[in-house]
Amino acid sequence: MNRPAVIAAAILSVFLTSGSALAHEPIFGLGPHTIFKGGFGLEMELEGEKASGAGEVENERVVTSEIIYGITANLSATLAIPYILERSSTNESSGTGDISVRTKYRFWRRDGIGVQDSAAVITGVKLPTGDDDKTLRLGSGSTDYLFGLAVARESLKWYYFGDVRYRLNTEGGGGLRAGNAFFADLAIGVRPRKTVYLRPDLVVIAELNFESRDRKELFGVDAADSGGTRLFLSPSFFYTYRNWALKGGIQFPVDQDLNGNQPESDYRFSLAVETHL
């Protein structure tokens, strides 16, 4: 396996684990929100990352279409279909990536006037639907699993979120197994202007996103130039009007402690439009 493929797989795995959350949740982390029973949510999200170093410059853009369905008011299912465009110094490839399915169960909720505290468990599976034969792979070729726990306190003025996630990766195409990954996110949001229903509503958020990845394995052997930890500070926002939401944010690396010789992330971004039907 060549070096761009390993780098591409690393970048891909970022997006396959990213939040793609419901509106009024952190942009890069996850929250415990679910959609109302029988409700559909449609989301189109553009995510990107620029990484450089170790003689490489990587650019990736992913457009993910998501369908969210409310099985009950506290249980939702999400289908995410990514379309990936990757570009390195020497290669370029594009196409449908690995499709993933997630469920979120809000197992605890405490409601008050203008306030909601809640907690949810998240489970997900990523299927090997993306092409993993290209030089720059569009999929990992593996079936991977996601487990998470999210808590939140939301009020008319302030928002507080916290979550932990663990991604269990299996061996995929070309004998490559991406290292398992752990994520932890904290977010605080504030609504600068009083909210009124049927008027545009803005919430600004500051997120702290931590990720730790194990080394990749190639045919059972650890890849030296892989894995490590990253910490991002991420200003983000959501802007909503009735059942429409525009949300986005940028992740700036605060600390990157990567094993061996790897390109470091310069920035990541996300911009999404979501509607509930």
Binding site: A23, H24, H33, I35, F36, K37, G39, R109, D111, G112, I113, G114, V115, Q116, E154, S155, L156, T195, V196, Y197, L198, R199, D201, V203, F238, T240, R242, N243, A245, H276
Partner: peptide, 18 residues
């Protein structure tokens, strides 16, 4: 109807619809 848990207008769409 007095409703507890209404903290964001985007989420309130669900109650409007229902």
């Amino acid at each position: 109807v007095t409703v507890e848990g209404l903290a964001c207008p985007f989420c309130a769409y669900g109650i409007e619809k229902k």
